[in-house]
């Protein structure tokens, strides 16, 4: 049977006042409770019945103090209620981690960004999640709690499959920590879409490079929408590290990035095009970062 729903399914709405209370609800209701931050992923999914068996919505927005975006010299901390819009407009983010602001701005629409959160974006864990590639290159760490205890998960280990993460149903992400990147590093997120707004990435490429006297001290490349999860491509990164920049090596890096991903064909693009674009955009990102004076002027690591 095919039905096109306009209404949400029935559920109860719970608004805990503290993390502890939220955790208790999650453990009480096992898999039938769903956490929401902005709800911009969960609500459409519920409406389209793409998510089933949810009897309880646990809204974190009743808990105060979770929308922080703070910088303490060692790194940036994002609370689970920090919205995409707030990150995009935050002075400290713009100054210190401009790549994050850039990725944030590339998402959806002002309305969705006003609701959606960075944490929700990674927890939702679609391969095209726009915040993921930048966070991957920044070696972000995700703080997780449950009634059983807390743990910190490196973002590289966070995603386990399309819309799947290491989180179990009774866990909550309490924040993302983003350490200062290497001094003199600069980064960029390129999102490939047919339109300029309200579009999902056909390919997303985040690159962070640390040049020093013509030598590549560090290179990190993360890709979105071209594998079951957002990924880093270590093999590609290693080609340039410690070597002098050259067009030839950059091409090799781009080639290795293209080989390092596992794209699929769907209604948005073919696997072949996606792979080609990883090659093109990886090369483009590195070249632009190297030539971009402005990037170094406002680059990373200022606070380091």
């Amino acid at each position: 049977m095919v039905t096109f729903y306009r209404r949400l399914p029935k559920f109860d709405y719970l608004a805990p006042q503290s993390i502890e209370e939220a955790l208790a609800l999650l453990s009480r209701y096992q898999g039938s409770a769903k956490v929401i931050a902005g709800g911009s992923d969960v609500v459409p999914k519920l409406k389209r019945r793409a998510m089933k068996g949810i009897d309880y919505i646990v809204d974190l927005k009743g808990i105060s103090g979770l929308d922080y975006i703070s910088y303490d010299g060692a790194g940036l901390k994002l609370g689970p209620l920090a919205t995409v819009r707030a990150v995009e407009r935050s002075d400290v983010v713009l100054e210190t981690f401009p790549m994050l602001a850039q990725a944030a701005e590339s998402m959806a629409s002002p309305q969705v960004r006003n609701r959606g959160t960075v944490v929700g974006n990674i927890c939702n864990a679609v391969p095209s999640a726009d915040m993921a590639p930048s966070l991957l290159t920044l070696d972000a760490k995700v703080s997780v709690v449950s009634e059983k205890g807390s743990r910190t998960v490196a973002i590289q280990d966070f995603f386990t499959g399309p819309t799947k993460t290491v989180l179990s149903a009774d866990e909550i992400v309490t924040g993302i920590e983003i350490p200062n990147p290497p001094a003199n590093s600069r980064g960029k997120y390129i999102k490939l879409t047919p339109r300029r707004a309200m579009d999902l990435a056909v390919v997303g490429v985040a690159v962070m490079v640390t040049p020093e006297n013509g030598i590549c001290k560090d290179l990190r490349i993360a890709l979105g929408a071209v594998s079951p999860t957002p990924i880093r491509v270590a093999q590609a990164e290693s080609i340039l590290k410690g070597n002098k920049f050259s067009d030839e090596l950059i091409d090799q890096v781009a080639e290795a990035a293209a080989e390092g991903c596992r794209p699929i064909s769907d209604h948005r693009a073919s696997a072949e095009y996606r792979r080609d674009m990883v090659r093109v955009l990886t090369r483009r990102a590195i070249r632009e970062l190297l030539s971009d004076e402005a990037a170094s002027a406002q680059g990373f690591g200022k606070g380091a």
């Binding site: 709405y13 608004a15 709800g39 911009s40 609500v43 459409p44 919505i57 809204d59 927005k61 819009r85 002002p110 309305q111 969705v112 006003n114 609701r115």
Partner: peptide, 13 residues
Amino acid sequence: GKTVNSCLVLAAE
């Protein structure tokens, strides 16, 4: 004071 898509906001929120 911020724009939202009211179709995605739960009334309870």
